[in-house]
Nucleic acid binder design. Structure first.
Lengths: 156, 156
DNA sequence: CTCATCGTTCGATATTGACAGAACGTTCAG
DNA sequence: CTGAACGTTCTGTCAATATCGAACGATGAG
């Protein structure tokens, strides 16, 4: 993390992650793993690069691993675990966010059930949500697959 | 808020909003405005329904108004401001979240600039993000317009 | 004119959660 | 066998922020 621009990039990613409701440190780690050379870094490396505690980094690498955004890879050094950004991680990420959005779909349905017997205008409030999220759920997966297939091709 | 199911619905929406990084109270207010009868409620009404303080409700109605999810409407009673869910609010909401997502697009571009001169494999990490979010930004607006036009039709 | 009601805003409080430090178990070097 | 380095987990601390209570200005009723 020698250069000013790299720090800036990492901080941008961390703020983005914060907006998404995830810990900043997780964003920082991901930020480093997106631009580091080599692309694998051990936990200790990350601590040093980010000037952060082992506990914090360990916790957040675990989080990112569970989210399937990064993965552990064999390290040349013994007793070291290396992490790297997981190919395809971005589509996984979008899929997860999409799932979050989609939960509103179900909530809207429950709401509509409550409004049984009211006038159509009342329904409109929730029907809009229901239809919107149905459509998104329907259409986005195809979009994601397009991106996936394109990148699998590229990495051959 | 007499019924158990309604409380449950409101709480579901509030938790959803929390996931999205917004105050719970804002979610609760929106939840009430999605199922209440009549669809307009004054600030005092909301306080009573939610058993919450005026300050909290006032702050969050302001927030939701700024987000264009709810709007003030003329009240039959004098000295009262009524709020209601804003028609089309959901597409506005999705558009906002989309904009948030899209900010990653720019960050990825900055990151790619940093990786100039590295091997193609390094690039792949960020290029995937760049392409994915480009595509989403490109395709989603059309989807939103489809929903909008459908509902404008329905409310005629 | 006076008082009550409504909504806003400011300051205080309480809760949540991110992060660091310390203790621990494990594994490899010597 | 001993010690050092690595990573994990637990506990405590601190900061951020959601919510409340209180004071305030404004508006309409009597």
């Amino acid at each position: 993390m020698r250069y000013y621009e790299e720090k800036h990039f990492v901080e941008d990613i961390s703020l983005y992650f914060e907006q998404m409701g995830l810990p900043r440190m997780a964003g920082r780690i991901l930020g480093v793993l997106l631009i580091c050379d080599p692309p694998e870094q051990s936990l200790t490396d990350l601590c040093e690069i980010l000037q952060a505690s082992k506990s914090s980094v360990s916790t957040n690498t675990r989080l990112l691993t569970e989210m399937d955004l990064i993965e552990r890879v064999a390290s040349p050094l013994p007793r070291q675990v290396s992490f790297r950004f997981k190919p395809g991680g971005w589509t996984v990420f979008v899929r997860q966010r999409l799932k979050l959005w989609a939960s509103l779909h179900d909530i809207a349905e429950q709401g509509l059930a409550l409004l049984q017997g009211r006038d159509a205008a009342s329904d409109e409030r929730l029907r809009e949500a229901h239809d919107l999220f149905s459509l998104i759920e329907e259409e986005l997966p195809a979009l994601l697959e397009r991106v996936e297939s394109k990148h699998k091709e590229g990495s051959r």
